[in-house]
Structure formats: C-alpha cells, structure tokens
C-alpha cells in the first residue's frame, strides 16, 4: 500500500498556519496523503485536529500556507472530499430516516425539488448495505445509537464518491466493540472504493493494524510518516518540546512524559498524562 510516488500525492498540506484571538492553533503544518491510504491524525483534545479538517475542507480561514488537491489549490466545497463531523446530534423529532440522510449526501447542495432518479435510490441502498446499515435504513436517524449514526454518516459522505474521506473523532464515545466494527468497516470500504481516509483520534492503538501513515499533532506542530517513523522518542520529544518515552507493551504503544524537560519550555503543554 505504501509503494506510492510522493509527487502524485492526492492531498498536500503546505506550511499552513492558523491563529485565532492572537493564539496560534496550527504552525507550519506540512504533510501529504496518497491515494487509497489510511492515515491516522493523532493528538490530544484541543490539539487542533478539527481546525485542520476545516482547513482541508476550505471552510477555515488560514493566515498562510496552502492545501493542494491533485496538485491544484482547493476550491470551496470540493466534491472529492467527504466529511464526517464530530458528535452530530440529531433531534429525535426530525422526520429524517437514515436513507434520507444518505440521499442528502448526493443532492443536499442542489437547489430545486427535482425527483430523485431511480439510480440514486439504488445507490443509497448499496451504500447502506456497504456500511451494514440496511437493518435500520427506515428508522429516524435521531433514534439510532451512536455507532449506528456513525455508519449512516459514513454512508452519507461516501455516496458522492469522494477520493478522500475525513472523519473527526468517529471512535469517541463508542464502546470497544463498536470501535473495532467501525474500523474494520472503514478499512473494507476504503479498499473497495479506493478512497483515502484521514481519521482523527486521541488514541492510536485501535488504528495500528490498519493505519498506513500517521500524522501526529501536538503544540500546533505535526510530524508525519509511517508509525515506525513518527512514534519514536526523538520525533515526539521534538514535537512536544520536552522529553517523552515511547513504550511498547503487549502490542500496544504508550507515549509517556519523562520528568526531565529538555530546553526551556515551561509554558508549553506538558503531556504529564499517559497518552495511549
């Protein structure tokens, strides 16, 4: 999967800077995503993952830098990028069935009330089956569980046949069983539809088996590469601004802060917690 040519990257983020209220949120962010790859965007809460997604979607003002899709600058509302936002709460009073939400993924931006063609109905059924949501296709989205809503949202984003799918913390608030199911489903869909996936999470371990590359965010900076290239004490210590250790225990990776800070970084965020 990783025998790619860097020059033909699907998406390239170049030196993006974002600040709000005089505070830097992202600094010189630089990485690329290749066709059909599964990339994990890993970082703690508030590290700037959602902001980065909004930059890629073209709905976030950024001070400098650019985002290239197929080597071209992004236009607003690119049909090649699908998006599953974090914690969408649907009101149970909404008369929107799961299949209606999926159909809106194809024509929700269109003006007018043209009849939906037969082909679209077929595509909706196909999508719902692809994410194992056929059983609750006719129930209101507001009445579905978190994991079920997540599947429907994935189908909603995939129906426009994007080349890149962004998922913002899709595994948060799911029970461990659902986490494994969603990851397996995404992996399967990504390979079948040849869609690249960029998935944000604060916990990298469930993604280790499927992740081709990792983009690690901390302190507004990112480090990217394969897991082995990025999740190393030297790389992560530079990112955090003080020393961290990487422990591998029973196939799990633990990032642990060490007591000794390297360099003067008293005001920087300390990962005094155990990440992953």
């Amino acid at each position: 999967m990783s025998d790619h040519e860097p020059s033909t990257a699907l998406l390239e983020v170049r030196d993006v800077n974002v600040s709000a209220d005089g505070r830097d949120i992202l600094r010189d962010v630089h990485f690329s995503i290749n066709h059909g790859e599964f990339t994990g965007l890993i970082g703690s809460n508030g590290a700037g993952k959602t902001t980065l997604f909004r930059v890629i979607l073209g709905i976030q003002e950024h001070a400098s830098g650019e985002v290239l899709l197929h080597g071209e600058p992004l236009t607003r509302s690119n049909r090649s990028i699908g998006y599953v936002p974090q914690k969408v709460l649907f009101d149970p009073d909404l008369p929107i069935r799961a299949r209606d939400l999926v159909a809106l993924g194809a024509d929700g931006h269109r003006y007018g009330l043209r009849r939906r063609p037969r082909a679209l109905h077929d595509a909706v059924d196909e999508m719902l089956d692809a994410v194992d949501a056929g059983a609750f296709a006719d129930r209101r989205v507001g009445s579905l569980s978190g994991g079920e809503q997540q599947r429907v949202l994935i189908a909603h984003s995939l129906i426009s046949r994007p080349e890149l799918l962004l998922l913002d913390e899709p595994l948060a608030n799911l029970d461990p069983g659902s986490v494994q199911e969603i990851i397996a489903l995404l992996h399967r869909v990504a390979q079948r539809q040849r869609v690249a996936i960029l998935l944000s999470a604060h916990e990298m371990n469930p993604l280790l088996p499927v992740m081709d590359r990792i983009v690690y965010v901390a302190n507004g900076h990112v480090a990217s590469g394969t897991t082995d290239e990025v999740v190393r004490p030297s790389v992560l210590s530079a990112l955090y601004g003080h020393h961290v250790d990487v422990l591998r225990v029973h196939g799990r990776v633990l990032v642990v802060a060490t007591a000794l800070p390297v360099g003067p970084a008293p005001n920087d965020e300390h990962p005094e917690f155990v990440v992953e």
Binding site: I59, P85, V88, L104, G108, S157
Partner: peptide, 9 residues
C-alpha cells in the same frame, strides 16, 4: 440537520 455536513457539501 447539521451545519457541518452542509458546509462540507
């Protein structure tokens, strides 16, 4: 339904 979904579309 969701401003984020609509903005992404």
């Amino acid at each position: 339904l969701s401003v984020e979904l609509a903005a992404a579309r």
